[in-house]
Design a protein around this nucleic acid. Sequence first.
DNA 1: GGCAGAATTTGCGCTGGCGCAAACTCGGGG
DNA 2: CCCCGAGTTTGCGCCAGCGCAAATTCTGCC
Lengths: 233, 233
Amino acid sequence: MAALDRSLISRLPLFQGMAPEEQSEILRSARSSRYAKDSWIFEQDTDAHSFFVLIAGHIRVVRTTPDGQQVIARYISEGEIFGVAAALGRTTYPASAVAAVDCVVLAWPNGLWPELARRFPTFGATTYRTVGNRLQETQTRVVEMSTEQVEQRVAHALLRLANQTGRKTESGIEIDFPISRQDIAEMTGTTLHTVSRLLTKWEENGIIVSGRQKVTVKDAHRLVVLSENRTKG
Amino acid sequence: MAALDRSLISRLPLFQGMAPEEQSEILRSARSSRYAKDSWIFEQDTDAHSFFVLIAGHIRVVRTTPDGQQVIARYISEGEIFGVAAALGRTTYPASAVAAVDCVVLAWPNGLWPELARRFPTFGATTYRTVGNRLQETQTRVVEMSTEQVEQRVAHALLRLANQTGRKTESGIEIDFPISRQDIAEMTGTTLHTVSRLLTKWEENGIIVSGRQKVTVKDAHRLVVLSENRTKG
DNA sequence: GGCAGAATTTGCGCTGGCGCAAACTCGGGG
DNA sequence: CCCCGAGTTTGCGCCAGCGCAAATTCTGCC
């Protein structure tokens, strides 16, 4: 396999603060893979062998319950690190990672984590900052699920997707990968039927436009209002 | 202030793998404080100045929403590290910490984290393992809130409390600190009324005994059955 | 270009659990 | 020892959102 080019990662925040030759060096121990849409990068509860950086595409992180129900933990965007079981002293992955579209991924063997974190302190620190953000995000989700109505939760979820992975088009902010009503339901703890009804209503009101596996936010401001609109208090 | 004695921490898993003189050294930069029941150790969104280890007592970690609703993120037990914003590169605390009973706490200034983590690698690693566990726990909670009925969630919450902070008595596993119906409601995303009804029912069935701010699990096995009892398929 | 399967929409009835309100009980402080 | 207030129990009505079912519309593949 040819050596990987530094340009793959030099623009990513995760590798900022590393000298060019360091970037090349860290790449020497990485291997690059492609994953077709809907294929698994790793599976929940299996032995954690590697950690990853997403170079291109979008990844869905999914938890599956013993009785087969799925919950989407989060989406990973380009440049993000994921599958960091090693950094947290775990031996298995707590969730599965699925390619939401065709993806390109870099992988490092878990055994290299301690050495890499030691040799490139900002790399370690950035990773832990990411973990901290995810912990906080996840707790925010618990709070939302505890205190908000379904409509507010779906509005929040769309806003988050638009912010994290939205692509500005002339007609609004388009979510950058195929996402079904079922997916949105699994992010918000509701059913695809309820999501469908909400999106239909919002489309009638001009807040969004949506199609099959596609959502574009046209009026983020009104969505914010909806997401904050407490009916009880 | 007199020097703190090594025996305070020598039994704690967090400080295992450190030589006695290292334990004494790490204590030299710590300060010890007492917190009366219901007092705040730190408050959400305030500047994070320190990280902490709980020496004695129980601490409730609480997130408050903009409109004043509270959600209990977790309880901290003796020996646990908490308020680790520094380790995750955050500058503010994402939640508040309240003494559930009178507590004794050690605190280190955040500025010391990098040095301590470098000098005592197992200390850092253990901390990050704890963070990983909490992230996974929090995600489990999201899954529960998405897929389970209220009865199952309350059963799960009681089982978790019994495991983490339970004290075995001759009549069952007693939760080791005062906990109200309202508290349980804030852990499970329901109302104190519903919790009260469930506990009453369970007490009639001999699964628990409960009193004012007190719950004792008598038949954990049947509680497990309840927590897994899916009504829909 | 047509077809099979996937995704979405929509109607309808039902119920788990919440909101509200009131009564009651217990434990600690004075 | 009594009283006050926090914590708890309980009744009642209601409705957001789910379960179920069927129709409809895409779209990628053959």
